[in-house]
Design a protein around this nucleic acid. Structure first.
Length: 446
DNA sequence: TTTCATT
């Protein structure tokens, strides 16, 4: 059916409304298609604007690539279609360079000339804004890792180009996961995660990722009910959550109590993230005595990151998504109460403080900041599952924290996820120690 | 000064 040396092609810059059946005619003219699959989001099913294409014959793929790649632009796209071997066909990113501090006038060709002496260039693109203005940087892909390495050795810092503010940068391009972290940081900034504690926690952490992942899963679960705006944000978060930087969160995190959540939960992502990161009284979300955030609490200083916009105004989709969600929360202040499902504070917890879970469900946390109370560690660990108790130990005489505590989940997977994500987690100068609580008798050596 | 996306 397919030749053994067939090439799987990646096809990019496809309008999102085109499905397989729409794409087939475009590609069939180069040969019989073995497989054509539009790439969709795992959770939302949303078209990602690209596809994989395998022809039965290797030759068809080569023909299609030379006829189409960068050669034509599909309706509604502002960049030409991409038709090239999928990353899975070679091993991709270890031969791709990021080149920074170029002059603004330099073209693809100029850059290519600069790198040609080091090997065969597979790809060379100066990054440009929508207006075509150079961003002063480029990606250069060589045939081999060694060639790329040679270019770094010779060219990095070797000179300062006219119009550049510092010497030439030549390094391996960010990996997919580094890009994800960068993106997440941007969103974190946009969401206003700038409280001192949020900075200590860092926007890069496994913890933040776990939060994102949980939020995305929660929103995705309800996406059928959501406004398009909120869905866009959910998709973005899903994308970020998919970047599991160090593979720490091996077990998908199940929203502990999202399943019976009403549709209005659309307000959760934007409000919940600053709320949970505002641990330790640095919260950007002032709370009322009831424990609920005050209406319009997200930006109490009146500085909203996104002023009201006309829906018709051309804005960045992500920005639009968050602006949309903010609008949503503003229109339904009561929806703030629905933050609760993401960070449940079961009333039962207040009464019966120290319930233990089954073996393997209880974790021990040491090196807690002095000021952390039950409430803070609850908030810190609730993203990993259903917390049945959270207790910081305090000195009877002074009422001061002893800087350790216990959290119990209702299942071992949650406990493991919490340990994986939070053990070694740096807060201030200290690193948390998070491990399974020892069974009572295991503590006695005799 | 890190892209448009890679099941």
């Amino acid at each position: 059916m397919k030749e053994p040396d067939a090439i799987k092609l990646f096809v990019g810059q496809i309008p999102r409304h085109l499905e397989e059946k729409d794409l087939k005619p475009i590609f069939e003219q180069f040969g019989r298609i073995f497989e054509l699959t539009v790439i969709k989001d795992k959770y939302t099913g949303l078209h990602k604007g690209c596809a994989f294409l395998t022809y039965c014959a290797r030759d068809s793929a080569l023909k299609a690539q030379s006829a189409l790649h960068e050669q034509k632009t599909l309706p509604g796209m502002n960049r030409p279609i991409q038709v090239k071997p999928a990353d899975s066909e070679n091993r991709g990113e270890d031969r791709k360079l990021f080149v920074g501090m170029l002059g603004k006038q330099q073209t693809d060709e100029d850059v290519r000339k600069m790198f040609e002496p080091f090997g065969t260039i597979a790809e060379c693109t100066v990054l440009r804004g929508p207006d075509g203005a150079s961003k002063g940087c480029a990606f250069v892909k060589f045939q081999t890792h060694a060639e790329a390495q040679a270019a770094i050795s010779t060219l990095h810092s070797s000179r300062t180009l006219p119009g550049a503010s510092s010497s030439l940068v030549v390094k391996f391009a960010d990996t997919e996961k580094e890009r994800g972290l960068r993106r997440m940081q941007q969103v974190a900034t946009q969401l206003g995660m700038f409280s001192p504690i949020a900075l200590q926690f860092g926007a890069y952490s496994a913890y933040t990722q776990a939060l994102m992942q949980q939020q995305a899963a929660l929103v995705a679960a309800h996406s059928a009910y959501l406004s398009p705006m909120a869905t866009m944000a959910a998709v973005q978060m899903q994308h970020m959550a998919a970047i599991n930087a160090n593979g720490l969160i091996a077990t998908p995190i199940t929203p502990s109590s999202g399943t019976s959540t009403p549709p209005a939960i659309a307000a959760t992502p934007v409000s919940a993230i600053p709320a949970v990161l505002g641990i330790n009284g640095y919260s950007p979300v002032p709370t009322q005595p009831t424990g609920q955030p005050a209406p319009d609490a997200l930006y109490p200083n009146g500085v909203h990151p996104y002023p009201a916009q006309s829906p018709a105004a051309p804005v960045d989709p992500l920005q639009q998504a968050y602006a949309g969600m903010q609008h949503y929360t503003a229109a339904y202040p009561a929806a703030y109460s629905l933050v609760a499902p993401a960070f449940p504070q079961p009333p039962a917890l207040q009464q019966q403080q120290q319930r233990e879970g089954p073996d393997g469900c209880n974790i021990f946390i040491y090196h807690l900041p002095q000021e952390f109370t039950d409430s803070e560690i609850l908030q810190m660990f609730v993203p990993f599952g259903h917390v049945i108790s959270a207790k910081v130990f305090v000195d009877r005489a002074t009422n001061q924290s002893k800087c350790f505590g216990f959290v119990s989940f209702d299942n071992p997977a949650s406990a493991q996820a919490a340990i994986q994500a939070m053990n070694g987690f740096q807060i201030g100068m200290k690193r948390l120690k998070v491990q399974l609580k020892r069974p009572k008798d295991a503590n006695r050596p005799y």
